[in-house]
Amino acid sequence: MRPIRKRRLQLVVLLVVGVGTTMAIALLALQENLNLFYSPAQIVAGEVEQGVKIRAGGLVVPGSVKRDPDSLAAEFQVTDYTGYVTIRYTGILPDLFAEGEGIIAIGSLGSDMVVTAEQVLAKHDENYMPPEVARAIEEAGHPAGTSL
């Protein structure tokens, strides 16, 4: 490589490394703020202020979903296997809402440590499975569609 090209290449590398480092430092400083939601463990640990609008995310605890037969009100628990938080929501739950599945609730934490949600979003995982495969696995005695 000719010296002039080498010098230009060094400049280019310097630029990329410089910008990259700056960005990495900025992102490290913003670390916590870039998370979309709080985990149940964080909420239980008191990291969330009461009455402030937050997003709480976790897996719906199997057997915890209680639906009011006369209205759209529902109550369920979410967990990250460290903490458990109860969420209250009135409205239509998304199609992918199911026990054992991940959700994100947008709402605020009350003094009773219950999150009253205005909106519930379903989080789907990176696993895809055709129904036939799921059935075959189930028949073989393993639970299908588990997501952690």
């Binding site: 979309l36 994100i104 989080k123 990176e126 895809y128």
Partner: peptide, 19 residues
């Protein structure tokens, strides 16, 4: 970070988590 978007289905080091 914690995101609503799911992680990658296709990874260089593992088999895809898809049939």
């Amino acid at each position: 970070w914690k995101t609503l978007h799911q992680p990658a289905t296709f990874k260089l080091t593992e088999a895809p988590s898809m049939a």
